[in-house]
Amino acid sequence: MSKHLKVALVDDDIPNTEVLRDFLIRNGYSHVDKYHDGESFLESLDRFDERAVVLDFDLSGGGELNGLEVLEAIKERSPSTHVIFFSGQDSLEVAVESLKNGADDYIVKSNAAFALVKTSLDKVYDIQVLKLNERRSQRISWIMAIGWMATIAGVALYFAGR
């Protein structure tokens, strides 16, 4: 089943990013962008970016910014964007820092890491679906309320006119 969640992979590791992208596409994520440095990703970031970002910590092979700096910039510009930290650093400090700065998850690169990224993205997707359904039901409630008020007003006018 195709999932309507756009994903951005930000990692300077070119072959692994390509493999992860194919893995996610195979698992239903049809729209997966790749960026090999934080700077080019931030240039593409919108105010209400709906993409989920899978972000590496050590981006030294690509640009100047590291993953924590990119995370900070994402949260400043588009606070609702979901960020999954995906790092080769098995470091408690980096993990705590990223979660404190608003990352949704922290995954250490390992043999099972691709599957863990997918599981984490599935959670983000479920949250987005829930939010979408909530917005839809709110919209329906408003339309129904307006309909009821119009009916009541119509009935009141009818009786007032008699």
């Binding site: 300077d12 590791d13 072959p15 692994n16 493999v19 050590d58 030294s60 080769g88 690169k109 043999n111």
Partner: peptide, 15 residues
């Protein structure tokens, strides 16, 4: 260290 870090993940994916 930077090279080892970079190659480590790739070597892991290859198995």
């Amino acid at each position: 260290r930077a090279i080892l870090h970079k190659l480590k993940s790739q070597v892991q994916t290859i198995g």
